[in-house]
Design a protein around this nucleic acid. Sequence first.
DNA 1: TTCAGCCTGTCG
DNA 2: CGACAGGCTGAA
Length: 269
Amino acid sequence: MPELPEIESIKRDLQRALIGKKLTFVSIKNPEFILKNKIDSLKSILETKLLEIKRYGKYLIFLFEKEGILFHLGMTGFFLFFLPKIYKKYLILSLKFQNINLNYFDIRKFSKIKKIDKFNWRENKELKRLGKDALEIKEKEFKALIKNNKRCIKSFLLDQKVLAGLGNIYTDELLYRAKINPFKTTDSLSEEEIKKLFYEMKNLLKEAISLKGSSVKNFINVKGNKGKFQEKHMVYGKKGKECLRCGSLLIYKKINQRGTTFCPVCQAF
DNA sequence: TTCAGCCTGTCG
DNA sequence: CGACAGGCTGAA
């Protein structure tokens, strides 16, 4: 479910509420899930303070005094400061930070939770194989990555090993804004197009973060509220509708098993 | 590079 | 009922 802007929104909400607080109680509500994630126990973080929360790509990293915990929310993972009845059956983990309860849920159970080394958290196996974070990457590095590649631009943007953070919503929205056909190969892009792509990516992500992410179906933030960026979507989930720029009908095709919506005219091949 | 698989829900 | 869903992995 969540891509970079959603994870960043979650991170900011969690930070505001939890930094400096001591983890006083942990309760595992779905032992099979925790077992599958190979977490033997969470004792090492109990009774220690939460010092920092980081985001890298679509990962969230909680740094406690002695150890870190990494979360990847998959398609349908979410945190809430309360426990609604309707979500009880999806509850994985309950954490108590002094006076605040934090519950972690996952509907489809594609998420990942791991204990990681606090000091070298970036060296963790999962994080190490990610490319540069989409918010942090510099124009020069972005250019170099693109030139070093020759598959279609959509697969390139989606590949977390190259660029971390973009998912299906934001790649479609980005390619629409940059007026680039998702099937175009990276080596066919002009300097102009690459530059446009880079700046549109930064703007798109910043705008999405400022509106607290996109809530198309499941995404809710820590307080249970929806994001607002879905109101700004131009193509995602709009196949068959008219392009807001030129009026042509938006087309839907699959790329890498992912639904892809684009305007055949504005984003001509 | 493709494609089933991981799971659960919803929509047509 | 099948197709699809903000993701990702591992095997052919």
